[in-house]
């Protein structure tokens, strides 16, 4: 049976893993390769790296650390942040990443999703959506690492991105990110009803029960950063909670 995934997210700034609250007050943690290896050993099913400084500073992802990560882990990983062309996307894949994730640049030029999917395959293209609630059952997609409102309805954007070829959605609630108050379950449900590709729930994980809730709301994978980085829970505890709730989980590695 296909397993539900637990995915630690590593936000990278200037080649270092950082973590903030609601995209602010960044704290420096460690170099990406070491943390990646630690999470692989603990049983992470996959890793996501987001270069959060990239888009706002208008430069492409710095490549060196991607290779360093690929040299150390043997599980799939995604790289996002500042990917502004098919060329950059292909370069990141050729350095050893399994998928690339598009956000700001795809909002500016949706055709980038199609071009990347045609060259690399749908399975290699993740659409990252930072969504902020604007009313009951309504969310707006934000660009620039959660700083720039786009005026676009987040759910409609997800539908469009998938029809252009995105093979997976990394869905982050800006309101919940870093707050430990649980995922935005209504946002997950709305996205689940809109598209059939796998959905990675992100933003707000604080308790083990939050992971269970996200899968019940329709997510295929749960992503978290602080709870894992700060050792509040380890991967095994998250997986135990999911298994106890009856979800299929990878138990040996």
């Amino acid at each position: 049976m296909l397993k539900k995934r637990v995915i630690p997210c590593l936000d990278v700034k200037d080649g270092c893993v950082v973590k903030g609250v609601r995209f602010q007050n960044l704290r420096q943690l460690d170099e990406p390769g070491s943390l990646a290896e630690k999470y692989m050993e603990e049983g992470a099913d996959e890793l996501v790296f987001l270069d959060i400084s990239a888009s706002s500073e208008r430069r492409t992802t710095q490549m060196e650390w991607v290779r360093a990560v690929a040299d150390r882990i043997f599980i799939p990983f995604t790289v996002g942040g500042g990917i502004d062309s098919v060329k950059t996307a292909k370069e990141i894949i050729s350095l050893g990443a399994d998928k690339i994730s598009l956000n700001t640049r795809a909002l500016e030029d949706p055709n980038l999703i199609r071009e990347c999917a045609l060259l690399l395959g749908n399975q290699a293209v993740v659409l990252a959506v930072d969504a902020k609630m604007t009313g009951e059952g309504r969310w707006e997609a934000y660009a620039g690492g959660g700083t720039v409102p786009t005026g676009r309805n987040a759910i409609e954007w997800i539908e469009e991105g998938c029809s252009l070829g995105a093979g997976e959605v990394l869905l982050t609630s800006i309101d919940r990110d870093g707050t430990d108050s649980g995922y935005d379950l209504k946002l997950i449900e709305a996205a689940r009803n809109a598209v059939s590709v796998p959905i990675i729930a992100s933003g707000g994980a604080g308790k083990l029960q939050h992971f269970v809730e996200a899968l019940k709301a329709g997510a295929d994978a749960v992503l978290a950063a602080s709870v894992f980085h700060f050792g509040i829970y380890n991967i095994a505890e998250a997986k135990d909670a999911l298994a106890e709730a009856g979800f299929p989980i990878r138990r040996t590695w």
């Binding site: 049976m1 296909l2 749908n122 399975q123 093979g167 997976e168 059939s196 796998p198 295929d220 990878r250």
Partner: peptide, 11 residues
């Protein structure tokens, strides 16, 4: 089968 394509960990 669904989901298609088949992506992820399976036994």
């Amino acid at each position: 089968a669904k989901p298609w394509p088949h992506i992820g960990w399976n036994e």
